[in-house]
């Protein structure tokens, strides 16, 4: 089943960066993710390119296929159309920005094939 939208995507939600700084979700910049990942001991930032967007099996859901990192690992996630992803250099983007704005008051761009989203990997499991 698709991942439901968590409460922290609501405009005005307070997000704590890795250095302790607090920002509203709508004010986050690409650098905030990059800098937070740099000082994280567990997480590493990676880029995930949108390769396909298909209709999901549930109502209002989409299947998004990502190609992750240099190794182009394939990851497919099913989310609601309003689920926002953070695109490098662009900010919040969803498959249905009007709905994201309507439900969460979060300004969004349209998520498209070729967009490069912020994703995370564990630094090391070895």
């Amino acid at each position: 089943s698709p991942v439901a939208l968590p409460p922290f995507f609501m405009r005005g939600s307070i997000i704590q960066l890795a250095d302790g700084e607090l920002k509203r979700v709508e004010d986050l910049k690409t650098e905030d993710f990059i800098q937070s990942a740099e000082i994280s001991s567990e997480l590493k930032i990676d880029s995930s390119t949108v390769e396909r967007i298909d209709t999901g099996q549930s109502p209002n859901a989409v299947l998004i296929q990502f190609s992750v990192g240099e190794l182009k690992a394939q990851v497919c996630v099913e989310v609601l159309v309003e689920y926002p992803f953070f695109v490098f250099g662009q900010g919040w983007s969803s498959c249905c920005p009007d709905r994201t704005t309507q439900l969460f008051e979060l300004s969004c761009a349209k998520l498209c094939v070729g967009d490069v989203c912020v994703s995370l990997t564990l630094r090391s499991l070895r």
């Binding site: 922290f8 993710f33 953070f86 564990l122």
Partner: peptide, 19 residues
């Protein structure tokens, strides 16, 4: 007011890759 960690905004943890 609830405070959420930055990494909760990233929807999935990608497969671990060797460095």
């Amino acid at each position: 007011v609830p405070v959420f960690p930055w990494h909760s905004l990233v929807p999935f943890l990608a497969p671990t890759q060797s460095d």
